[in-house]
């Protein structure tokens, strides 16, 4: 997927090179997940628990390095970065639940835990209250532009992303992640060196 992007980005740059042209790569990370494991399921909440998506260590309940995105051209010269994550949740138990979701961005080197605040950062977060039997949607959306300090975490080595969902209450919950997009924006003219 990443090498394909390199090919196509080169192609796009060759065909339209202007100061105002922005090449946008919209990565549908969800489509690359194997099956539905970790993306849809039922959880019993025994008072409080956390889950981490995507699941990089085969244990949904433990923090990990998230999804590494690398091997892309000129990542350290991004014009912008956007994220869009959507998850549908349903309280299938008998008690109320409170959800808090936090989208994390981390450097490529932060391979063990992108949720501990050591080198990583939160891009956006949201919260949701679900009464018994109620359904809701968790939607995380953020956009960084050139000059934003968080973009410094994205280097030529790549970067990591992930979502931490914290649930409190005593009930059961059905969840399904329905969208996980990362959007990279590159302005070819940013790569032209000054004479």
């Amino acid at each position: 997927m990443k090498k394909l992007l390199l090919l196509l980005a080169t192609l796009a740059v060759l065909t339209a090179c202007s100061a105002h042209t922005v090449v946008v790569a919209d990565l549908d990370l969800l489509s690359f997940a194997q099956g539905t494991e970790g993306l849809e399921g039922d959880l019993t909440v025994p008072g409080s628990m956390q889950v981490y998506i995507p699941d990089a260590d085969d244990n949904l309940a433990t923090p990990d390095g998230g999804e590494l995105i690398s091997d892309l051209p000129a990542l350290d010269e991004l014009h912008g970065l956007g994220i869009d994550v959507v998850a549908d949740v349903e309280n299938t138990g008998s008690g109320p639940l409170d959800l808090q979701a936090d989208f994390r961005l981390a450097p490529a080197s932060d391979s063990s835990n992108i949720y501990d605040g050591a080198g990583d950062t939160s891009l956006t977060n949201t919260s949701l209250h679900l009464d018994a039997g109620a359904s809701g949607r968790v939607h995380l959306e953020a956009h960084l532009q050139k000059g934003d300090p968080a973009l410094d975490l994205v280097t030529s080595d790549g970067f990591r992303v992930g979502v931490e969902i914290q649930v409190s209450g005593s009930s059961t919950i059905h969840y399904q992640v329905t969208g996980f997009h990362v959007v990279l924006e590159q302005r070819p003219f940013d790569l032209i060196p000054e004479p």
């Binding site: 196509l8 922005v22 090449v23 690359f32």
Partner: peptide, 18 residues
């Protein structure tokens, strides 16, 4: 003439659309 403002590469497991 003006080059397009955006060229969007939609990359998914199903393929790539531009």
């Amino acid at each position: 003439p003006s080059s397009p403002d955006e060229i969007v590469l939609h990359v998914s497991a199903d393929g790539v659309r531009i």
